[in-house]
């Protein structure tokens, strides 16, 4: 590929507007705010739609929802819950397992706003990615919290769990919990890029396990159009999930099937060439290139940029 050719590609490259480049981000913020509003409508306005917190709640007096990680801790610490708790967990596990486990992380969890902001600051400051624990670390942390629960017969991790603390703080009163939130923020900015949600959080690990067979998937359907601008890798909080789908050839599935994918839709947002789209796990269709002469992939510049990480 000549430099003249490259220039011409850059010139012709479409550029989406701000709204289009942030639509799923805005939608996610909307959903996160709405979720929080449901919990706050009671204490703030006397409108009791949802009671409790994300660890366990009751909607309109009929729909119990209980977090599986919390229940898991209670179970291993030797306590068998009441029926409402069991039903609550069953509904949550069932829904997320079917629709997409880590939807919780990017569409519901209040900590997502904190770590997304941290990552934004991290990028603006142009910081190095810092300490990157192994991909399995979150499962180790999960196992550790459960072992401690079993060993002490108490939900010990809940003394430090910044996620439940943040939500409980917002709904019931913060106390000193803001400090743990600030710690997560600083950790993500200065110590480890995508450190908390992407590597450590044991709640995310549980929802990741629910994500293995779930339906909602992002597909790099239009991967033939990709011109390796790396925007998606830049914004993706779990960017190891992209490569197999995006760089797949021929019969390789364009679906992002990795359980770490939070279905946040950020890759769909930022891609000016509309490579990605939301779909279901059975839709393995590829969009055939419309131009007669598809853009040739030259792996050299990608390698020069440090591979696909």
């Amino acid at each position: 590929m000549t430099s003249a050719h490259l220039d011409s590609v850059v010139c012709e490259r479409p550029k989406h507007g701000w709204l289009r480049r942030n639509r799923f981000l805005l939608l996610r913020r909307g959903v996160q705010l709405f979720t929080l509003a449901l919990f706050l409508a009671g204490p703030w306005a006397g409108l009791w739609i949802v009671k409790g917190t994300l660890t366990s709640s009751m909607t309109l007096g009929v729909l119990p929802l209980t977090d599986p990680f919390l229940m898991l801790q209670a179970l291993v610490s030797g306590h068998w819950p009441e029926l409402t708790g069991i039903i609550g967990v069953a509904i949550v596990v069932g829904s997320y397992a079917v629709f997409g486990g880590r939807i919780y992380c990017s569409w519901v969890c209040p900590m997502n706003v904190v770590t997304d902001s941290a990552n934004w600051v991290h990028r603006m400051l142009g910081l190095k990615k810092g300490w990157q624990p192994k991909k399995q670390t979150r499962y180790w942390v999960m196992a550790m919290t459960l072992l401690v629960a079993a060993g002490t017969g108490s939900l010990a991790y809940e003394l430090v769990n910044p996620v439940t603390m943040l939500h409980r703080g917002l709904v019931f009163g913060m106390g000193f919990a803001w400090a743990s939130v600030v710690m997560v923020f600083l950790f993500d900015v200065f110590v480890s890029r995508h450190g908390w949600c992407g590597h450590l959080c044991p709640m995310g690990a549980v929802y990741g396990l629910l994500n293995i067979q779930s339906l909602l998937r992002v597909s790099a359907k239009n991967r033939e159009a990709c011109d390796d601008c790396m925007d998606c890798f830049e914004v993706c909080p779990e960017n190891h999930v992209i490569s197999p789908a995006l760089r797949g050839k021929g019969d390789d599935t364009p679906l992002i099937l990795n359980r770490d994918c939070t279905a946040c839709g950020r890759c769909i947002d930022v891609c000016d060439l509309d490579v990605f789209s939301f779909t279901h796990r059975f839709d393995t269709q590829l969009i055939q290139p419309t131009s007669i002469e598809p853009i040739q992939h030259d792996p050299a510049p990608i390698k020069a940029m440090g591979g696909h990480k």
Binding site: K51, T53, T55, G78, R168
Partner: peptide, 17 residues
């Protein structure tokens, strides 16, 4: 207390009701 700390998921539903 010992059992309570292993059973309570800190959801606040009792507080609300």
């Amino acid at each position: 207390e010992e059992e309570f700390l292993g059973a309570c998921v800190r959801c606040g539903l009792c507080v609300r009701d």
